[in-house]
């Protein structure tokens, strides 16, 4: 398959992620949308890796290492992020981010 398909798919996924982050109020969904954006990048990374490998570059596989980095970071983020959301739920009994405007005033 041409690489354009992968690019297109990643862009779509990334945009869905952005729109989700911007428009949803539920913290968990925003969180998932962030993950979606990360994974869109991962997908793109793998696709480009394959493209360069087909073109005969020997070290094109290195790009896939970055994917692992991102996955590790994402996992760490999940750990921290979910903890924050749990704390938030404990305090407000809700995961609506618009309730979190206490810094004001």
């Amino acid at each position: 398959m041409p690489v354009q398909y992968y690019i297109f798919l990643s862009v779509v996924l990334f945009c869905i992620g952005i729109m989700g982050v911007l428009m949803r109020r539920n913290a968990i969904i925003i969180f998932m949308c962030v993950e979606l954006m990360l994974n869109a990048v991962n997908l793109l990374m793998v696709a480009f890796s394959k493209m360069w490998a087909d073109a005969g570059h020997v070290d094109a596989g290195a790009a896939q290492i970055f994917v692992f980095f991102i996955m590790v970071v994402a996992a760490a983020e999940v750990a921290v992020g979910l903890a924050i959301i749990v704390m938030m739920y404990r305090n407000t009994h809700s995961v609506d981010i618009n309730l979190l405007n206490r810094l004001k005033n």
């Binding site: 982050v21 911007l22 109020r25 981010i97 618009n98 979190l100 405007n101 206490r102 810094l103 004001k104």
Partner: peptide, 10 residues
């Protein structure tokens, strides 16, 4: 600085 997280992200 209205405190709305959504606005900040935007």
């Amino acid at each position: 600085q209205n405190g709305q997280v959504g606005f900040y992200i935007f």
